[in-house]
């Protein structure tokens, strides 16, 4: 007897199991955002309150408090890169062929890679929260706010994983995800409101920021962390971003995913 969705759960579980059995990848996933928080976050530690308010455009009591949702959001970009690297590894070691000689579609492979990588990225969340608490950030969120924050990050990660997987669908070169990451990460990170308030951006950069999904995720999380009014539409924008990217990635992978 055949079980529907069985390949999906099998491949999804494989993605997660492989991560937890590979301490090196796990440590790398966690260390990078932690470094951002520790070093970049501390760089404004001695800034007077009025200057901090000017830089952040908020009532954040410390730069780390302001930065936490932003760093978590930008780290979802890296998750996309790891997702496409794992796909290329499967192609090069022949595992993709093993999968696709079974009644498992390319679309299923894509969705499990996108969701698996996104879920893996969320491993950073509790670690970063713990780190922020250690740095003295006060977090008083309701269960709904916690869920919405995590949900928003998950949607952002799904979107970026889908984007990376679509771009690298035909590639078998280890270096491609890194090149794509360099091309995408910097502009998206600095043109978002993740690291600084976008109020000081020039008009053209402000325009990019207004449509940058990292901005939506950072502002959503920041509203919870700072206890300010939440614009719930941000969650809707992130869902739209994830949905559109997932659809594009599904289409591209179903047609163009290379087996080896």
């Amino acid at each position: 007897m055949r079980v529907p969705l069985s390949p999906f759960w099998g491949l999804y579980a494989r993605e997660l199991l492989r991560t937890f059995r590979n301490p090196f990848v796990l440590i790398l996933t966690i260390v990078q955002p932690f470094m951002w928080l520790a070093f970049f976050g501390s760089s404004f530690a001695l800034l007077p309150a009025s200057a901090l308010e000017s830089v952040t455009g908020t009532t954040a009591t410390s730069y780390i408090q302001f930065l936490l949702p932003g760093v978590l959001s930008t780290s979802m970009l890296t998750v996309g890169m790891f997702g496409s690297m794992s796909t290329i590894q499967d192609k090069r070691f022949g595992f993709m062929k093993r999968i696709l000689i079974t009644p498992t579609s390319k679309g299923t492979v894509f969705v499990t890679k996108a969701l698996g990588s996104a879920s893996r990225g969320l491993v950073q969340f509790p670690i970063m929260i713990a780190a922020a608490l250690l740095f003295g950030v006060s977090l008083r969120l309701s269960p709904l706010e916690w869920a919405a924050w995590i949900g928003g990050l998950m949607l952002l990660a799904i979107g970026f994983c889908s984007l990376f997987l679509a771009i690298t669908a035909r590639s078998t070169d280890w270096q491609t995800p890194g090149v794509v990451s360099n091309f995408i990460t910097m502009p998206l990170m600095f043109s978002s409101g993740a690291l600084f308030s976008s109020a000081h951006f020039p008009a053209w950069m402000q325009a990019i920021s207004d449509y940058n999904p990292i901005t939506f995720s950072a502002l959503l999380g920041r509203s919870f962390v700072l206890g300010t009014a939440t614009d719930w539409w941000y969650l809707g924008y992130l869902a739209l971003f994830a949905g559109v990217m997932l659809s594009i990635g599904y289409f591209v992978s179903s047609r163009f995913l290379r087996v080896e």
């Binding site: 055949r2 079980v3 069985s6 491949l11 199991l17």
Partner: peptide
Amino acid sequence: DFTARENLWLQAKLQSLK
């Protein structure tokens, strides 16, 4: 990274076997 049985488990999942 998987055991022999886990490799078989994954193959069963890919083939949708019960």
